[in-house]
């Protein structure tokens, strides 16, 4: 079932890929015929957050179906710590560049993290290749709060400093909140509670005035109202009847930065060495998105299928650049 032939394969394929030429841009390699004996071992996936979190949920849904099309199992390894830094550093240090080792993370907070503090490796040394979801950032509130709308929140925030629960400081949802505060003149104090569940509980116990999180984490939860999304439209109006599209409503001048934008990444050197394998990964990922079993798996994981966002290297790159630009603009606020 799983043969560990790492060394032999690597040598063979160095020869193969040098014959094919070191292709820089890889999306146009036709067919996957050369990658016939790929994958030859379990796909090791590094996840830079804790097991049981949002990334874990999306990973299981996608890899469960993807493994069918790729013909091999995925094995996740969880490397939480320092806002994803540990996972990425471990991946860059330990992963083989034979296309069997991937990283699966949430691009938003993790890229923002690089804006705040650069990692030890070069940012070009890895790239995201397959995006699986776009989960908008939301502002949510305890149902028994006196504030019922975003306008209420802003009015209150002009009177006193509001405490806002968030997963991390360097997070697209935090960023959205900071931009909203800056544009409307209200005062907020972000309270990072590490992780969706803690953030939700911070609002539920009444310890903070409100919270910001990817919408999936709070949608349909008891005693929680979603007041708005950091987006240009409300994808699921019936699941969050009170929500408004904050980006357009308050003219934030932000691109729609999904707070949850989970994606598979890979070492750039692996892509350079094995364009054929990369092509096979993309081809099978496309088959996965097209497979009705995937939508089923997402539903089963209690994530809305409306947030599935099929994207590849280009879309990921665009997101990466957008969030880096906005992050740089508000860097001072993110570190406070």
């Amino acid at each position: 079932m799983k043969i560990e032939q790492k060394r032999i394969n690597r040598r063979e394929f160095i020869a193969l890929s040098s014959a094919a030429g070191a292709a820089g841009l890889l999306s146009s390699i036709p067919g996957a015929a050369q990658a016939a004996d790929f994958p030859s071992r379990k796909m090791q996936t590094y996840i830079p957050t804790r097991a049981g979190g949002g990334a874990d949920r999306n990973f299981r849904a996608f890899s469960g179906v993807w493994s069918k099309h790729l013909g091999i199992d995925f094995e996740p390894g969880f490397f939480p710590g320092a806002a994803g830094r540990v996972g990425y550093e471990t991946y860059m240090a330990k992963a083989a560049d034979d296309c069997h080792d991937l990283i699966f993370g949430n691009m938003g907070p993790e890229v923002l993290n690089w804006v705040v503090k650069k990692p030890s490796f070069d940012l070009g040394a890895y790239q995201y290749i397959i995006q699986v979801d776009a989960d908008p950032g939301s502002i949510f509130i305890n149902t028994n709060s006196s504030m019922k709308t975003i306008d209420d929140v802003i009015a209150e925030g002009k009177k006193r400093t509001l405490t806002v629960a968030t997963s991390r400081l360097a997070h697209p949802a935090s960023l959205g909140m900071l931009v909203l505060a800056a544009k409307t003149g209200m005062k907020v104090n972000l309270i990072p509670l590490s992780g969706g569940k803690n953030t939700r509980n911070g609002v539920l116990t009444g310890e903070t005035d409100l919270g910001v999180l990817p919408a999936t984490t709070v949608m349909g939860r008891k005693n929680i109202n979603i007041l708005g999304l950091f987006d240009e439209k409300i994808v699921l109006p019936d699941r969050m009847p009170k929500a408004i599209a904050i980006n357009t409503e308050y003219k934030l001048g932000l691109p729609p930065l999904a707070a949850g934008a989970r994606a598979f990444g890979i070492k750039t050197s692996a892509l350079d060495k094995h364009p054929d394998r990369y092509a096979k990964l993309i081809e099978t990922a496309k088959m996965t998105f097209a497979d009705p079993a995937y939508a089923e798996a997402v539903k089963k994981a209690k994530a809305p299928i409306e947030f599935i966002a099929e994207g590849y290297a280009d879309q990921c790159k665009a997101y990466f650049d957008d969030i880096t630009a906005v992050g740089k603009e508000y860097k001072d606020l993110l570190t406070g």
């Binding site: 490397f79 939480p80 710590g81 320092a82 806002a83 830094r85 540990v86 550093e89 471990t90 993290n113 503090k117 991390r168 400081l169 360097a170 990072p192 509670l193 590490s194 570190t335």
Partner: peptide, 18 residues
Amino acid sequence: VVYEAPRGTFGFLELYDK
């Protein structure tokens, strides 16, 4: 949890997450 600053880790990345 707030500032993500490593403390008392003896420089080991493996100790960043407690």
